[in-house]
Simulated scan of single mutants.
Amino acid sequence: MVKYDYIIVGAGAAGLMMAYRMAKEPFFADKTILILDKEKKTQNDRTWCFWEQNKGEWDDILHHSWSKIYFTSDSYSSKKSISPYKYKMIKGDDFYKKTWKSLENKSNITFRKEPVSEILQEEKFATVITSKNTYFSKNILNSILFSDDYKKQSKYPALQQHFVGFFIKTKENHFDNSIATFMDFSVEQKENTRFMYVLPYKKNEALFEYTLFSADLLPYDEYKVGIEKYLLEKGITDYEIIEKEQGSIPMTSYEFWKKNSKNIINIGTSGGWSKASTGFTFKNIDKKTVELIHHLKQEKSLETFHQKTKFWLYDLLLLDILAKKNYLGASIFSKMFKNIAPQKIFKFLDEETTIVEEIQIFSKMQKRLFSKALIRRIF
């Protein structure tokens, strides 16, 4: 067996961001760090979006940003400024280029292209078994979701944010690239929570993403037809598809962190770092990696890192509602955006609000609906 001070399993957003932060931190300069994955990502395989106030750490690789958002449904529509926030977009290839570049001259950091089959907690350390080798360490940071146990259990709802996106280029200038369509619920709901998400980053280029918050994925053609129908309704007929993306993110309050141990911590989606009520992941990873760096420097047990908060319960109540009555999504989000300023919504979803602010927010939501969900969850 080969020993490293730290082993990062999985070189996606969470694994690479941890490696990037470790490379910048002098504490880890004399520590051996191994990154394992079946491939080294360099292509644009996904897009991450997040809101943020003022300048941020990732601004040098932003593909585009917006200071206004558009929300629409059958009952409510609005265009609103989100200042001092901006809604920011990063493409996968730019993120990979930035993070890999930060690692290339670090002699203490090694990447090996080896599929990982198993991670085991031993008495005093943990082991990682790959197709080629066995490694051991007292600090294993795993971002690979090896199990679908969260889908098999019944204690917590397990929805998905699932989507197909087309990057569209038109001959004419069709788009206002100063405003992002955050949620367009005008698409047929079909007893689900379905919306179109539109990010115009040029006057003639935009990402159109057909998105659902629901338990079951759709056949690919249903997403495709949904996008094509939407484009037709918007009078966009002369276009080319320059890129495509597809994804599915768990939306669940399942306690992934209970699988952490003294020497193994699950990070990213496999650690429950995706925001359960929205599926947004990048900004959570950004925050959590900073916190985990601090935790590692204190050399504490990895199983003590996660702390459950009141926001875990808030997310759970929404998921309980959508799991039972998935068609209510449009009305819930419509009331939220109608009655609450987007800045306050963002602050709440960033888990930065006070209890007074949260009471104000819930007073403007469907109180009876959420009260019933709370009572059911308690009893």
Results as ranks from 00 to 15, higher is better:
residue 32 T to A: 10
residue 34 L to A: 11
residue 32 T to V: 08
residue 28 F to D: 04
residue 58 W to H: 06
residue 41 K to A: 12
residue 68 K to F: 03
residue 56 G to I: 02
residue 36 L to V: 09
residue 36 L to T: 05
residue 48 W to F: 11
residue 65 S to M: 06
residue 75 S to D: 06
residue 52 E to I: 02
residue 74 D to Y: 12
residue 33 I to D: 05
residue 44 N to Q: 12
residue 68 K to T: 00
residue 46 R to S: 12
residue 74 D to E: 11
residue 31 K to Y: 11
residue 26 P to G: 09
residue 60 D to R: 12
residue 38 K to L: 11
residue 58 W to C: 01
residue 27 F to V: 05
residue 61 I to Q: 04
residue 54 N to Y: 13
residue 48 W to K: 09
residue 26 P to K: 15
residue 69 I to G: 02
residue 46 R to H: 14
residue 25 E to F: 13
residue 36 L to G: 07
residue 55 K to M: 04
residue 28 F to N: 04
residue 42 T to N: 13
residue 55 K to N: 05
residue 72 T to N: 11
residue 52 E to K: 09
residue 70 Y to G: 02
residue 29 A to S: 13
residue 68 K to V: 00
residue 32 T to I: 09
residue 28 F to S: 08
residue 39 E to I: 15
residue 67 S to K: 11
residue 52 E to H: 13
residue 73 S to K: 03
residue 53 Q to I: 00
residue 46 R to E: 05
residue 45 D to V: 07
residue 33 I to H: 04
residue 26 P to C: 10
residue 57 E to A: 08
residue 31 K to I: 10
residue 62 L to N: 06
residue 33 I to Q: 09
residue 72 T to V: 04
residue 47 T to V: 07
residue 57 E to S: 06
residue 71 F to W: 10
residue 57 E to C: 06
residue 30 D to Y: 15
residue 70 Y to N: 06
residue 25 E to S: 14
residue 67 S to T: 07
residue 38 K to T: 05
residue 72 T to A: 09
residue 32 T to H: 14
residue 69 I to R: 01
residue 68 K to R: 13
residue 35 I to E: 04
residue 50 F to W: 08
residue 46 R to M: 10
residue 60 D to L: 08
residue 30 D to M: 14
residue 52 E to A: 12
residue 24 K to N: 12
residue 43 Q to V: 11
residue 72 T to Q: 13
residue 60 D to C: 06
residue 50 F to P: 01
residue 65 S to D: 06
residue 53 Q to A: 03
residue 40 K to G: 12
residue 53 Q to D: 04
residue 44 N to V: 00
residue 35 I to D: 08
residue 53 Q to W: 08
residue 64 H to I: 00
residue 37 D to E: 08
residue 50 F to D: 00
residue 25 E to A: 15
residue 70 Y to S: 01
residue 28 F to R: 14
residue 49 C to I: 05
residue 69 I to A: 04
residue 45 D to W: 06
residue 45 D to Q: 10
residue 48 W to C: 06
residue 61 I to W: 05
residue 73 S to A: 06
residue 60 D to M: 07
residue 62 L to G: 03
residue 71 F to D: 01
residue 57 E to L: 09
residue 44 N to A: 10
residue 53 Q to Y: 07
residue 65 S to K: 11
residue 51 W to R: 02
residue 55 K to Y: 05
residue 30 D to W: 14
residue 48 W to E: 01
